[in-house]
Design a protein around this nucleic acid. Structure first.
Lengths: 244, 244
DNA sequence: GCGCGGAAAATGTCAGACAATTAAATGTAT
DNA sequence: ATACATTTAATTGTCTGACATTTTCCGCGC
């Protein structure tokens, strides 16, 4: 775990990288204890605050956890699905919002990926997932629901669909695509007419999944994708007109 | 940008969260300058090292960049696709390696997602992507290629396929799925026979993409998925036997 | 008008200290 | 002997103050 003083400054980044590499390529295993801050400081020939900055960087990526007290210290942390989800969603959302990604691009990606899950979901869906989907469909039909709540419910519905595939890796990858769309979807005003259309498509999808009919699920997802796209384009157009 | 001293200790995490929230929900925009470390220290009523730890956390997530010198400081950073890719890949790889994800699960997820890209790639593939795919196929046929290089070439081939869909959001989401599989694939010993099979399937896929035949691409990807799965299962079985 | 140098502002780093926390070791009483 | 309380040591969390380094800006001299 040695560093060359090759590049100038930003020692804490170099130290963080050295430790990260040790973790990523398996030289340190889960729950293994890192040397204490004082020891690391001596090892890398820097001061303790510098070491601490490096450790905080790693903590921010959920690579380590720290524990105070005697025989405490920093430990290699097992990355949980929940934390990975969270990081992935944050990154995806920021990526979309900061790079002015077009609604069409994000929408296309999201539905393409969801359609990949549909056959598996049709095959493996549990009563739980179906129940969640039905519950969200019901909520989406309630009058007086705010656009934001409608969107949130839409996300929950689609996540239930994805989770139906019973593949945690798939769920993790999809989380980014589905959740990151929410800010874009929130720009849309959902009229009563459009909500009816969406609810009807959601119902068709849920029916298909329940009947384990992958083909029908795919067709309806495709239609939902197309419909969402037009809604989004309308919304974007309205925004553009208003701002000029 | 105020914090409640609600929870005890880990001030730097609280401060990081406060600033992160300000960035994520748009109260600070790209390239906006944060207050100086001294000002933040005064604002949050903590010392400068504590503020610095918080800032390093944010830097680790590529949320800010810092610049030394007069009128330097910390600035909200535009998250680039490259950095997002990198973070996503790191997280995905760790998630798989630390949670002992089964080969079948990761493989299924990867190919399901790739098959979602194939129709778009068939539609939009550029000469560049086709050239990359052909070049990697050629490399894969070279005798004396190490298993690791074969795997790396496989990843490059598949990324070219995904990039062919010309949707950066899709490429970003897929990067995690494709790259994170590499450590698992590296456990496989690719016999001459299996390499031939894979090269032949890759060729069929490239041909289909070139001919813009989405259906053929899908069929061959499905077959490749099934074949990879059996290879992986064999490898896992061998490892299991050897360790007992 | 142009270059040059210093002042100023900011981050990067260090040293040393103290507080807070925790687990193990030790001691004490039943 | 065992259970419980106490001490102790190790370690992270935080603060203070200082100095080094880097970069920009502004004024000065030419």
């Amino acid at each position: 775990m040695k560093t060359e003083p090759k590049s100038p400054s930003d020692l804490s980044a170099q130290i963080a990288k050295a430790i990260r590499d040790a973790i990523v390529d398996g030289r340190m295993i889960v729950d293994e204890r890192l040397p204490s801050e004082a020891e690391l400081a001596a090892e890398f020939n820097v001061s303790r605050p510098t070491v601490r900055e490096a450790l905080k960087r790693l903590a921010a990526q959920s690579l380590i956890r720290t524990q105070r007290g005697a025989f405490g210290g920093a430990f290699v942390k097992r990355l949980s699905y929940e934390e990975a989800y969270g990081q992935h969603i944050t990154t995806s959302t920021l990526l979309l919002s900061m790079n002015a990604v077009r609604f069409e691009t994000a929408c296309e990606a999201r539905y393409a990926l969801e359609r990949a899950c549909a056959p598996l979901a049709a095959q493996r869906r549990s009563p739980d997932h179906l129940a969640t989907m039905r519950a969200e469909i019901h909520r989406q039909g309630q009058p007086g629901l705010s656009d934001e709540s409608f969107c949130a419910s839409d996300v929950t519905f689609h996540r239930a669909l994805v989770d139906g595939a019973a593949n945690p890796v798939l769920s993790y990858q999809l989380a980014g695509a589905v959740e990151a769309m929410q800010p874009l979807m929130n720009m849309i005003t959902f009229t009563e007419r459009s909500r009816e259309e969406i609810v009807s498509l959601h119902t068709a999808i849920a029916d298909a999944i329940e009947a384990q009919d992958a083909k029908a699920a795919d067709v309806n997802l495709e239609e939902l994708a197309a419909y969402t796209l037009t809604l989004g384009q309308d919304a974007m157009e309205k925004r553009a007109r208003k701002s000029t």
